[in-house]
């Protein structure tokens, strides 16, 4: 039996909650306009379930992204009551009696309704050489490359990222300057920099320490608060600042030939 009899009663009474969804159709709307939809308030319904109900039953024209419904694909990130959240992991009951304000992720250009342009983000990810660089020392394809648990532990946290972009949405520096490389891309660079099999740190340094790189970050820390996967991109950035500063000092002190 449910531990929450009140909730139970409310449900059988057919209680509902208002989803206030940001609608934007280019060519028709100059800016997004909120629209209210009444959806059933069920204990096990996430905000995404509410949106699916709108799309299936109330208004088929609503555009939004989703796929896995279990916090893995990273495509359902939206701004819920002002905060960047995965809508599949955010429950309607958290906001009862409502309304639940659903807007597109902040910091990104809106294409339509709740769909934002992810191209700039994908470009940033690609710019940090996000693969194992071996500099000509590739092992044969059938070779194993064993790592100790410590070597795995050095980067594992940063490999948990699902590219949901919630961290960018929480970052005021990115909101002010879209050229900022941003939390997830820098954490991704660290995922490879700290991998014992990787040899690409020098190439990544040129991107991370350049304009728009780590020196733009003021450690607001909200990216890490928003991250649903415990990646701590803010920590990754600060840790890299120390690495980059030491590297700069080293290059400064050593004559060119001795590097």
């Amino acid at each position: 039996m449910s531990a929450e009899p009140a909730m139970r009663a409310a449900e059988t009474a057919g209680e509902s909650i208002v989803l206030r969804v940001s609608r934007y159709l280019p060519g028709r709307d100059a800016e997004p306009v909120p629209r209210d939809y009444e959806v059933p308030l069920r204990e096990e319904w996430s905000v995404l379930d509410g949106l699916n109900h709108v799309k299936d039953v109330l208004d088929g024209s609503l555009a939004y992204r989703w796929s896995c419904r279990m916090g893995i694909c990273g495509s359902c990130g939206m701004t819920v009551n002002g905060e960047p959240r995965l809508t599949c992991g955010t429950f309607l009951s958290e906001f009862a009696p409502g309304p639940v304000v659903v807007e597109p992720l902040r910091g990104f250009a809106v294409i339509r309704d709740l769909v934002v342009d992810i191209e700039p983000f994908l470009g940033k990810l690609a710019s940090v050489t996000p693969w194992l660089v071996r500099n000509g020392a590739e092992p044969p394809p059938d070779a194993e490359f064993a790592q100790t648990p410590e070597q795995l532990g050095a980067y594992k946290q940063f490999s948990m990222c699902i590219n949901c972009m919630l961290c960018y949405s929480a970052c005021p520096v990115y909101a002010l300057d879209e050229d900022f490389l941003g939390p997830a891309a820098i954490a991704l660079a660290q995922r490879y920099n700290l991998d014992s099999r990787d040899m690409g740190a020098a190439a990544r340094f040129d991107v991370l320490a350049a304009a728009g790189g780590v020196w733009d970050c003021t450690y607001v820390g909200e990216c890490s608060a928003a991250c649903p996967k415990g990646v701590d991109p803010a920590g990754a950035i600060q840790q890299y600042k120390l690495t980059a500063a030491m590297e700069t000092v080293r290059r400064f002190l050593l004559p060119k030939g001795a590097r």
Binding site: Y24, L25, P26, G27, R28, D29, E31, P32, G82, R106, A109, V110, I111, D117, P172, A175, L176, V220, G221, E222, A225
Partner: peptide, 23 residues
């Protein structure tokens, strides 16, 4: 509608840090 021309960009308020406690 022209897909690239009509994107909506939400303006950032100048005093963005007044609206949210962690900021």
């Amino acid at each position: 509608p022209d897909d690239t021309a009509a994107r909506y960009r939400r303006p950032v308020p100048v005093l963005w840090w007044t609206g949210r406690r962690p900021y």
